[in-house]
């Protein structure tokens, strides 16, 4: 087997490893972003419970670290964001479709009811998102192994075919 073929196979394997790591990072980012939204919803709930703060002021006063964890783009102007829906539009979401749907539903229900019902709504969605986060966390090690295995095997397979 020529030296070039060996080098090519090694490059393909390396590419497989890189691809796998990229996909693993994306899965981890999805988990981190879900955690960010859980923290944000808890913050919103506390502000409603303690101060009955309107949504736009809650978002304006939120810790920038929490918003960045939710995927808020760097050049977003918080002064222009008046609702949770607008916040979602300014985020680069990498969460699962189920989580994204939960967030959209929460955006539709935030601010539409009185205090007690609003707190119950917040608790409901915090519970749902926390369950989703816990599921992702539990599955992450297995997903990492699966992603790396598939990627390396796929690229190894290509390398073998080419060799």
């Amino acid at each position: 087997m020529s030296l070039y073929k060996v080098l090519g196979a090694l490059l393909l394997l390396f590419g497989g490893v890189l691809c796998g790591r990229a996909l693993c990072r994306r899965a981890e980012a999805g988990l981190l972003q879900t955690e960010g939204f859980v923290a944000l919803l808890k913050y919103i709930r506390n502000q409603i419970d303690c101060y009955l703060m309107p949504v736009d002021r809650i978002l304006a006063g939120c810790d920038p670290g929490i918003l960045m964890a939710c995927g808020l783009v760097a050049d977003a102007d918080l002064r222009e964001i008046k609702s949770f829906s607008e916040l979602l539009d300014c985020c680069e979401l990498c969460v699962s479709e189920a989580t994204a749907e939960l967030l959209r539903k929460f955006a539709g229900e935030l601010g539409t009811s009185y205090r007690d019902m609003q707190l119950k709504i917040c608790d409901y969605y915090i519970g749902k998102l926390s369950a989703e986060r816990d599921r992702l966390q539990a599955e992450l090690p297995a997903r990492r192994k699966m992603i790396m295995t598939i990627c390396i095997c796929a690229f190894a397979g290509v390398a073998l075919i080419m060799i």
Binding site: L52, P54, V55, K82, L110, T112, M117
Partner: peptide, 16 residues
Amino acid sequence: LNRLCGGSLYAFSDTI
């Protein structure tokens, strides 16, 4: 009503 409350009905529940 929702727009009058600025999208935060709960913030005005006492006065409503």
